[in-house]
Every structure is written in structure tokens, then in C-alpha cells.
């Protein structure tokens, strides 16, 4: 199938043609796998974000707790994914559950860290005004700190999603759905094309989700009154949502 001596550049057009051909013939299956992959990531994020934001809020209350929580979340990220899946199988069986559990763990650090940073970097005068006007600590958190920190928290979530989409591919090894199935099947059958196409699909999915979150993040920053260079998607979104101003 491949000639070892041929220069990779000279082979490129032939390879690309091969990948396109593979993608075209397996299109339906690729779409299904991509959707499964995205759903797995979405499930993970839906579970991970509430936990991480809660922990992030907790870190702002106590410096010592902050150190411990961030340290543990950092440790969690260093555990190799395959080892973690293996350790979880006795408790959670095979398939998606151990994978989601592990991915939830991996997404903690970026979200906790950004929640902490977002909540603590808020302008002192704004908080002082909230306090002076008679907001309780919880009201300040809900009405001032969280909305202002939202873009920063979202940047952490965005970070986590990209990690999750990448690592989720490994989940196929323990039976989780997603594009990882093609990668492992490619490895098993020596089908490089299959591996490459699935990998590109994983990357494209990650890039698309990253961009979308980036646009939402920018939109939230604009709403908070920050001045930024807007991405094309952000300009589109703000135009789309500018009805808000005339509507209320």
C-alpha cells in the first residue's frame, strides 16, 4: 500500500485522494461516530462543569482549601488515561461510564482554576458597591461575581472540552462510543487511512467546538463591557442577538 522509499511530499496527493475516498465511502458511519463522540464529550462537560464551578467557588472561600483542591485536580491530570480506565472498570464496568468518569476528572483543573481566577480578579469597587447596597455574600456571588467571571470560566470549559474530545478517543479501547473505534480498528487491522481519517475528524470536532465556545466567550465579554477584537463568528452572533436591545 505504501512505498517506503518514496518521499512523503511526492506521495501527498495520492494519500489525500485516498483519505477523501475513504471518508466519502464511510461518510454515514463517520457522521454517526462523530455525533457519538460529541455526545460523550457533552455528557462529560454537563457533569464536570457544575462540580468544577462549585469547587472553584469553594476555593475562593479558603486559601488552604484552594491549594489542596488545585493540587488534587493537578494530580488527576497526570494519571494516564488507559491506566485510569483500567482502574475504573471493576467499579463501573466497560463502555461509556468509566470513560465519562475519567474525563470528568480530567476536566476539573482548567475549570476550577479559571473559576477561581475569574471570581477573584473582580474589581474591588464593584464588590464594595454590592456590599454597601445590602447584598448578602451569596447575592454578590450570584448577581455580580459569577456573571462577571462567566467568560473566564467559559474559557476554562473550552480548555476542558478540547482535552475531553482528544482523550475520549482512547475511551474506545474500553468500549466507549466515538471516533476512537475507527482508530483502534485501524490499529488492529493495519489500516492507516482509517486511523488518519478518524484522527482528522477528532481534530476537526475539537476545533469546531473550540471556536464555538470562543465565540460565546467573546459574546459574554462584550456583554460585560470589555473591549476586544471580535472574531467573525462573534460579530455574526452579536448582530443576530442585537434584537435584545430594541426588544426589552
Amino acid at each position: 500500500m505504501t512505498t517506503l522509499l518514496a518521499s512523503p511530499i511526492a506521495m501527498l496527493p495520492a494519500l489525500v485522494a485516498e483519505y477523501v475516498d475513504f471518508a466519502a465511502t464511510h461518510f454515514d458511519e463517520l457522521v454517526v461516530l462523530t455525533i457519538q463522540h460529541a455526545l460523550l464529550a457533552a455528557d462529560t462537560i454537563a457533569i464536570a462543569v457544575p462540580i468544577a464551578v462549585t469547587l472553584g467557588v469553594a476555593t475562593t472561600y479558603d486559601d488552604r482549601a484552594a491549594t489542596v483542591i488545585l493540587w488534587l485536580a493537578g494530580i488527576a491530570m497526570t494519571i494516564p488515561s488507559l491506566a485510569l480506565f483500567g482502574l475504573l472498570i471493576p467499579f463501573l464496568g466497560i463502555g461509556s461510564p468509566p470513560v465519562i468518569f475519567a474525563l470528568v476528572l480530567y476536566s476539573q483543573l482548567p475549570v476550577i482554576r479559571n473559576t477561581y481566577v475569574g471570581l477573584t480578579k473582580i474589581d474591588e469597587a464593584t464588590l464594595s458597591a454590592g456590599r454597601g447596597l445590602g447584598m448578602t455574600r451569596r447575592q454578590r456571588l450570584r448577581r455580580i461575581q459569577l456573571p462577571i467571571a462567566m467568560p473566564v470560566i467559559l474559557a476554562g470549559v473550552r480548555n476542558a472540552v478540547v482535552i475531553v474530545i482528544g482523550v475520549a478517543a482512547v475511551g474506545a479501547y474500553v468500549g466507549a462510543d466515538g471516533l476512537g473505534e475507527y482508530i483502534f480498528e485501524g490499529i488492529r487491522t493495519g489500516n492507516t487511512t482509517m486511523i488518519v481519517v478518524a484522527t482528522i475528524a477528532v481534530s476537526l470536532l475539537a476545533l469546531a467546538v473550540d471556536y464555538t465556545f470562543g465565540v460565546v466567550e467573546q459574546y459574554l465579554r462584550l456583554r460585560n463591557g470589555e473591549t476586544i477584537d471580535q472574531a467573525l463568528g462573534t460579530r455574526f452572533l452579536t448582530t443576530l442577538l442585537s434584537v435584545r436591545n430594541t426588544h426589552q
Binding site: 474589581d123 469597587a125 464593584t126 464594595s128 458597591a129 454597601g132 445590602g134 455580580i144 456583554r223
Partner: peptide, 29 residues
């Protein structure tokens, strides 16, 4: 908390809530 809600408070740094509209800011208390 009750006391502060019955006492208006204005500071030099203003401390408006930039993520809320002017109307929402005024509506706070």
C-alpha cells in the same frame, strides 16, 4: 443587610455593575 438596604451608598470609584444595563443597576436595591 437590612440596614444597608435602607441607606444609599455612593463611592468615588462608582462601582457600577458593568454586566448589567443602567436600568438593572438602578433596580438593584
Amino acid at each position: 443587610i437590612e440596614l444597608r438596604r435602607n441607606i444609599g451608598y455612593v463611592i468615588q470609584e462608582i462601582g457600577l455593575f458593568d454586566h448589567m444595563t443602567v436600568g438593572e443597576n438602578i433596580a438593584t436595591v
